[in-house]
Amino acid sequence: MNLKKIILSRTDAIGDVILTLPLTAYLKKVFPETEIIFLGKDYTKDIIENCPFVDSFISWDAIEKNAVSEFQKINADAILHIFPKSQIAKAASKAGIPIRVGTSHRAYHWNTCNRIISFSRKRSDMHEAQLNFQLLKGLDINYIPELEEFKDINLIEPKQELREDLKEILNNGKFNLILHPGSKGSAREWGVDRFAELIKLLPKSKIQIFITGTKKEGLLFRKDLVVPFPDVVDLTGLLSLKDLMLFIKNCDGIVAESTGPLHIGSVLGIHAIGIYPPIRPMHPGRWAPIGKKTKVFVKEKKCSDCRKSGRCKCMREIASIEVADYITAL
C-alpha cells in the first residue's frame, strides 16, 4: 500500500494521546517514508510535537471552522479516527480523503468512512494502546502487539531544556517525587487525605516532594498537602504542559491516579506509580501506564459500586503505607 500521508485523529486528553503514540512508532516502522500527521487539540501539542515518530501536528482548534478545505490542503491518503468525532469524520469525507477508517460503533461512520472496523473498547480485555491497533485493519494490517513491546520505545524525546528556576528546586541528593493528587474529573481519585498520609510516611531525609496540578486544584488541597508540610514544594498552577513534561523528565518518580502526568512519567522513563480502581473500563488492564518503571496499585476484585457515586471505595482501601513502602524501597 503506497501511503504518502496518514492522519491520526485523536482530539481528547493527554493520557489518551500518549497511549496512541505506540501506533505512530509502528506506522513509521512499516511505512518509513510516510508522513505521519497527528490531529489533536492545542493543549496536547507539546506532547505530540516531542514524539519522534510524528512528522507534523495539526490543531483541530485551528482548523475546525474550515476543516474541509484544510483537509484538502493536507492531501492525505488516509485518516484513522482513533477518537471518534462526528464533525471530523464528516469533514474528512467531504474533503475526499481516499481511505477513511472508523469503528462500527459510531453510526455516523457508516456514512462517512469507507473502511469500517468492528470492535468494542468497553468490552475488550485489551489495553488502550493495543486497541488503537485494531484500526490498522483498515490499512490491511492485522497486528496487535504485546504491551512489553512498548517499553523499549522512546515515545517522547523532549528537545527543550528545563527552566533554570525549576532546575534549582530539584534536590540532587534525594529522590525527587511528584505527587499529582487531582484528575480534573477524568479519573476516580484516591483522596487528598491518602496523599497527606503518604507525605507523612515518606522519609524527608531521602525524598523531596513536589505537588502538581491546576491552579484550581491547588486551592482545593493546598491546606492539606502543603501548609502542614514545610518541606513540600507547591507547583500547582505554575507549570505549562511543556514545563510539566520537562519537570517530570528531571524527577525520579510520580504518584497519580489514571491521569496524563502519570502517563507522561511512564514514557519518559521515571518511576510511574498509579492508583487505580478495579471498575471496568477504568481498570489498569485498559489504562495502566506502559513504561519500563511502572507500578499499579489496585484492589484485585470485581466491583462496580462506584459507577453511580463516583467515589471509589476500592481505591480508598489501598493503604498509603503500601505505596510508601514501595517508594522507599526504590
Rank of each mutant, 00 (worst) to 15 (best):
A187I: 04
E189F: 07
W190V: 03
W190P: 00
W190S: 06
W190M: 08
W190R: 02
W190F: 10
G191F: 10
G191M: 10
V192W: 12
D193K: 14
R194A: 12
F195Y: 13
F195I: 01
A196L: 02
L198S: 00
L198F: 05
I199M: 12
K200L: 12
L201G: 10
L201T: 07
P203Y: 01
P203H: 02
P203F: 01
K204M: 07
S205I: 04
S205M: 04
K206E: 15
I207V: 15
Q208T: 07
Q208P: 05
F210V: 05
I211S: 03
T212H: 01
G213Y: 07
G213A: 09
T214H: 05
K215V: 06
K215W: 09
K216Q: 14
E217T: 08
G218F: 02
G218M: 02
L219A: 10
L219K: 13
L219N: 09
L219F: 06
L220R: 13
F221K: 12
F221V: 11
F221I: 06
R222P: 02
D224V: 05
D224K: 15
L225T: 06
L225K: 03
V226M: 09
V226P: 00
V226I: 15
V226N: 02
P228T: 11
P228E: 02
F229W: 05
F229H: 05
F229A: 05
P230V: 10
P230D: 14
D231T: 09
D231I: 01
D231Q: 13
V232F: 11
V232C: 10
V232R: 06
V232L: 07
L235D: 13
L235F: 10
T236V: 08
T236L: 06
T236M: 12
T236W: 08
G237E: 11
G237A: 12
L238E: 14
L238W: 03
L239K: 09
L239T: 14
L239V: 08
L239E: 02
S240R: 09
L241I: 14
L241Q: 13
K242C: 08
K242Q: 15
D243S: 00
D243Q: 07
L244D: 11
M245Q: 07
L246Q: 03
L246M: 07
F247Y: 13
K249D: 08
C251I: 04
C251F: 08
C251G: 07
C251T: 15
C251E: 11
D252V: 07
D252R: 12
D252W: 11
G253L: 00
G253S: 00
I254D: 00
I254R: 00
I254P: 11
V255N: 07
V255I: 15
V255W: 09
A256H: 09
A256N: 07
E257L: 05
S258H: 02
S258N: 15
P261Q: 00
P261V: 00
P261M: 00
L262K: 01
I264F: 04
I264W: 06
G265F: 08
S266Q: 08
S266F: 08
L268R: 08
G269E: 03
G269S: 08
H271W: 12
A272N: 02
A272S: 15
G274E: 01
Y276S: 13
Y276W: 13
P277K: 11
P277M: 04
P278W: 11
P278K: 13
I279P: 02
I279M: 14
I279Q: 15
R280I: 12
R280Q: 14
P281C: 09
P281I: 11
